[in-house]
Design a protein around this nucleic acid. Structure first.
Length: 206
DNA sequence: CAATAGATCATCT
DNA sequence: GATGATCTATTGC
């Protein structure tokens, strides 16, 4: 079943947690969401919407249940889902998927992935694997080729909360959510002892 | 296994 | 003109 718009018209953090375990479908390819990050309005300087409405960020202020796809580092695109009622900023970055369907197609789109885990475990990776580009920016994910659905049988899982990754502003805010123990989350592999890598908090001071 | 540099461009100052 | 919600290949233990 496709998630209704009401699912997205809630506080961003609730949407970010609720999206874990759901299925992103684009054409013949699909994957289960195992890692998300919340990007809020207001004081969250890490969010693109922090500096107000621009040509790029207008989607974040628009109606919920739409895709916000942006281009970054000259090479990669990242998929977000717009939350909050229309007029209020807030979106959820999809950071990692567990491949579900269309594996051959995904492999073809990502020749650099040597393991199944590498296929979709990262924001730039999963957009390549699913074939998502800026053409999907602003697309309605409650209808069309790009949708988010509930899995056939929803399993129980615990949620881990950590700081967000790859940002400089507000780097210590606990807004990253992962399915605990799922091997497809991005970051250090826990095949062996995963040592905690301490990052300098840049936003903790004044 | 851990750390580092390079690729590359839309967006904003 | 600088920077960034990244990924990959390469180097060094």
């Amino acid at each position: 079943m496709i998630l209704p718009r009401g699912f997205y018209a809630r506080p961003t953090i609730e949407v970010a947690r609720g999206l874990l375990g759901k299925i992103v479908v684009h054409g013949e390819t699909s994957g289960k969401i195992v890692e998300t990050e919340a990007y809020l309005g207001g004081d969250d300087l890490a969010s693109h919407s922090a500096h107000g409405i621009t040509a790029r960020t207008r989607v974040i202020f628009g109606p919920p249940g739409h895709a916000y796809v942006y281009f970054i580092y000259g090479m990669y695109e990242c998929l977000n889902l717009v939350a909050e009622p229309e007029g209020q900023p807030g979106c959820v970055l999809i950071r990692a998927l567990e491949p579900v369907a269309g594996l051959e197609t995904m492999q073809r789109r990502r020749p650099a992935a040597h393991t199944l885990r590498d296929l979709t475990s990262g924001p730039g990776r999963l957009t390549l694997a699913l074939g998502i580009t800026r053409a999907q920016n602003g697309a309605d994910v409650t209808r069309g080729a790009l949708t988010v659905r509930t899995p056939a049988n929803e399993e129980n899982f615990a949620i881990d909360v950590t700081p967000r990754i790859g940002i400089r502003q507000c780097a210590d805010w606990p807004l990253r959510f992962v399915i605990k123990g799922n091997p497809f989350v991005s970051g250090p592999k826990d095949s062996t002892r995963a040592r905690r890598k301490a990052r300098n908090p840049r936003c903790s001071g004044s």
